[in-house]
Every structure is written in structure tokens, then in C-alpha cells.
Computed example of a mutant assay.
Amino acid sequence: MDALDYLQPGDRMGTAPASVPTDGVLGRIGSLETRIALTDSEIDAAQAVRYRVFVEEMQAQLPAEAMLRKRDFDKWDDICDHLLVLDRNIDGDPEDQIVATYRLLRQDVAMQHGGFYSDSEYLTEALVARHPDIRFMELGRSCVLPDYRSKRTVELLWQGNWAYALKHNIGVMFGCASFHGTDPAAHATALSFLYHNARATGDWAVSARPELAVDMNMLPAEEVSGRRALTALPPLVKGYLRLGAMIGDGAVVDHAFNTTDVLVVLPIASISDRYINYYGADAGRFAS
């Protein structure tokens, strides 16, 4: 369940000052806290959590070395920051306490290393080029262990993303979100709903790479039920939409991860005032 499912949308066009917590911890709720990974061993532990979710639970097929090591890893891990949620009530070192993770890649870092991860599926270069005065940040590899799929955990992931974005003066968050399975037709209602109601247009338009693109316009607008479609959306996608996100044109099938992907684009200026007030305009709601 996405924490954003517990809130209601409000007026958009919120803004926020760029003050953030300074003690390294980006948020706390009860025994849970969120922060950026500090060591290689913590990143390795986050990769183990990703393996448990993506491979053992969702049947992803990773390269042979990753399957042997039981770690989801790739070249991007070396240049990304890794947002963690830790349960301090679990005995052991921080590596034993990681229950959720997100991978964060800032535009300045991406440009020094050949671009964003999403470039392999979407034409994000053109999107970024149209907004030279805005800093982009890519979100990816979001996962939560089954026992921690609760409001508190996802709230802390969002608190961490929000605080990190403020710290680095980010103007747009974007990244791929996934439907389970590699048959886009199985998600025709939801994909058509996104196409007709949430597609990014104008300066925010972005398309899947032509050789990979699957048409999301499978059903006419009048045949797409909003209630049915919203029920069919993954909680993460639903949460992004409630924040004010837009969806790129075209889905992409990722056979390795056994998913059908869509690209989410979330300008900070589009985030609902209600959510900014909830998480804290200075990222301080859960930081103490």
C-alpha cells in the first residue's frame, strides 16, 4: 500500500524552501529511519534486498553473476546514491536492518557517466534538453520487503526522496514504474487510462524508444472506467499521480525484470500543496 493512498489530493503548484535535516537521517517513524547508504557494505545489503524482491518474489532473470551472488546489481549502482529504510529494532548491524530501498541518480552525476538508466527505454535526453534551467533526478529500483509494505515505510521513502531533492535543488523527479508481467494487453484498462488522462504533453512530452514502444492507447477514452482503471494501477503509480505526475507516451516490456514499464515525470512545481504541507516544506515532518 502506497502511503500516498492514505491522503487526498489538493491544490497544485506548491513550492518549498531548500532547508533539510543536517544529521544524516532524513526521517524517522517509530523504529524506522531513512537515510542514504554510507558504506559499500550497506549498498551490498540493499542489493540483497532488491534480489529478494525482484528475483525471489517477482521472478526477474538477472545476469549469471548477479544470480550467483544473489544480488541485484549493475553499473549504475556505482554512481547512484542509495536511499535506505532501516528498522532499528532488528538486532545486528545496519546491513541487517535494511527493509526498503530506492536508487537516486542526479542529473549532474548522470551526465558525467553517459546519461540516465531510463535512457535505455525512453528518449529522456530530449526531455532534459528542453529544461536547461531545471535539475532532474532519476528514481529507480524501488522495493520494500513484504513484512514492511505499510504506510510508515513508504512514507519514509517519500520523506527521504523529498529531503534529498531539496538538498540537491532538484526540480524534476522521474523514472520507470512497473506493472507486473510482460503482457501489456493484460493492463489495457490501466495503460489506456494513463494515456488518455495523465500523458505528458508539450514541454514535458517524452516517448518510449521507437523500437521498444508499446502503444498505450488500447481502449478509447469513453470505454475506460476511471474507478476500474485506478484499481488496476500499481500503488506506486497511483501515488505518483496523486502527487501530480505525468506519464510518458508508450510502455516498454522489460523481459529481464518480468515487467511492463511506464515513465513517470514529476515536476516539483506540480506537487500538491497538501502533500508538501504533509511531508514538510523543509522536509522536517519526520526528521526529528
Score class of each variant (00 low, 15 high):
Asp11Val: 09
Thr15Gln: 12
Thr15Cys: 07
Ala16Glu: 04
Ala16Thr: 12
Ser19Arg: 12
Ser19Ala: 12
Pro21Cys: 08
Asp23Ser: 12
Leu38Phe: 02
Glu42Asp: 05
Ala45Ser: 14
Ala46Lys: 01
Tyr51Cys: 06
Val53Ile: 15
Glu56Pro: 07
Met58Gln: 13
Gln59Glu: 12
Gln59Ser: 15
Gln61Thr: 15
Gln61Phe: 02
Leu62Ala: 06
Leu62Glu: 11
Pro63Leu: 10
Pro63Arg: 12
Ala64Cys: 01
Arg71Cys: 01
Asp74Ser: 07
Trp76Val: 11
Asp77His: 05
His82Ser: 01
Leu83Val: 04
Val85Met: 08
Leu86Asp: 04
Leu86Pro: 07
Glu95Ser: 13
Asp96Ile: 00
Arg103Asn: 02
Leu104Gln: 06
Leu104Asp: 00
Leu104Met: 14
Arg106Asp: 10
Val109Lys: 12
His113Ile: 06
Gly115Asn: 07
Gly115Ile: 10
Glu121Ile: 00
Leu123Ala: 14
Leu123Arg: 08
Leu127Glu: 08
Leu127Tyr: 12
Leu127Asn: 07
Pro132Arg: 05
Phe136Cys: 03
Glu138Trp: 04
Arg141Glu: 02
Arg149Trp: 03
Lys151His: 13
Arg152Ala: 15
Val154Phe: 14
Gln159Ile: 03
Gly160Pro: 04
Ala165Val: 01
His168Ile: 02
Gly171Asp: 04
Met173Gln: 11
Gly175Thr: 08
Cys176Asp: 01
Phe179Cys: 05
Asp183His: 09
His187Val: 06
Ala188Val: 01
His196Cys: 06
Ala198Trp: 04
Gly202Gln: 05
Trp204Tyr: 15
Val206Leu: 10
Ser207Asp: 15
Ala213Phe: 02
Gly226Thr: 12
Ala229Lys: 07
Thr231Lys: 11
Leu233Glu: 09
Leu241Gly: 03
Arg242Leu: 14
Gly250Gln: 02
Asp254His: 02
His255Pro: 09
Ala256Glu: 15
Ala256Arg: 11
Phe257Lys: 11
Phe257Glu: 09
Leu263Ile: 13
Leu263Lys: 04
Leu266Asp: 07
Pro267Thr: 08
Ser272Glu: 07
Ala283Arg: 01
Arg285Pro: 01
Ser288Val: 00
